[in-house]
Simulated scan of single mutants.
Amino acid sequence: MRLQTEVKLYTMCMIQDGSRILLMNRPDAKGFPGYIAPGGKVDFPESIVNGAIREVREETGLIVKDIIYKGLEESCEPNTGLRYMVFNYLATSFEGELLENPPEGELVWVDLEEALKLPMQNWFKRRFPLFFEKGTFELSEIWDEKTGIVLEETVKQYPARLPQLAGFAD
């Protein structure tokens, strides 16, 4: 008998303003405590990118304009059939004002060079630099929830530009 699978779709959007980025300091009570970029669940039937734009607006009050797809991080748990997929974006322009009472945690503009010194989840710290590199990334792991052991891992980075194909103009 084949295990039934469940797919959960999420987004994360790093917002950059020059040398600063916007992070959220999530309290323990919200889960994933520490500094993190805005994001959340994709509602059916919205597109992934529209889910990212909506989540940023709900969590920060900002409306992102120039949004770039940066990559996918996924985790699969073979015992439960869970596939958790996070689509990651970088926004380099926005409009609006930050919420005074954000629902997910305090919003803080942080210097990009200082960000990794802040307390954050290991999985976010690992993914953080990939938002700012050229091209896209794919991080995938198969893990055992009971033991906390990663059984298999795939890490790929793709160039910003594919090699020129013969017969195709630039």
Rank of each mutant, 00 (worst) to 15 (best):
G81T: 01
T92P: 03
W109P: 14
T80L: 02
S93F: 08
N101P: 00
I48A: 09
N79Q: 08
T80D: 01
L99D: 14
L82G: 02
D66C: 04
E77G: 00
D43L: 14
P38R: 01
L98P: 06
A52N: 14
I67L: 12
L99V: 09
F44L: 05
K70E: 03
P38C: 02
A29V: 15
N25A: 14
V42T: 09
T92L: 09
A91Q: 10
G40W: 00
A37L: 03
P27T: 13
V86H: 01
P103S: 03
E46C: 01
L62W: 08
L107A: 07
L90N: 11
I48W: 09
Y69H: 13
N79K: 13
E46K: 00
E73A: 11
L98Q: 03
M85T: 14
G71E: 13
L98K: 04
R26I: 13
W109L: 09
A52F: 02
E59A: 03
A91M: 11
V64G: 02
E95D: 15
F32P: 00
K70Q: 02
W109G: 09
G71Q: 04
P27M: 12
K41W: 12
I63S: 14
V108W: 03
E58A: 03
I63E: 15
P27V: 06
A52S: 14
G39S: 07
E95N: 08
I48G: 05
Y89Q: 10
L62I: 08
E97Q: 15
S93M: 05
E74K: 05
F87T: 08
R83M: 13
E97I: 11
G40H: 00
P33Q: 05
G96K: 10
E106G: 02
S75D: 02
L99N: 06
L72I: 15
G96W: 04
R26M: 12
K30N: 06
G40I: 01
N79E: 14
I53G: 04
N50K: 10
T80G: 02
E55D: 10
F32I: 05
E77Q: 06
G31Y: 04
R54W: 11
E74A: 10
E77F: 13
E74H: 02
S93D: 15
I67W: 05
I63D: 14
A29R: 09
N25K: 14
D43A: 14
V49M: 11
N79G: 06
V108G: 03
V86M: 09
S75T: 13
F44G: 01
E46Q: 12
G40T: 05
A37D: 02
G105F: 06
V64M: 01
I36G: 00
T92C: 07
S75L: 00
G81N: 00
I36K: 12
R83P: 00
G61I: 13
E59D: 07
P33W: 02
E74N: 11
E106Y: 07
P38A: 11
I63F: 06
Y89T: 09
G31Q: 04
K70N: 04
Y89P: 07
A29M: 03
K41A: 06
K70M: 08
T92V: 13
S47M: 09
M24A: 08
N79M: 04
F87D: 06
E59T: 02
L82V: 15
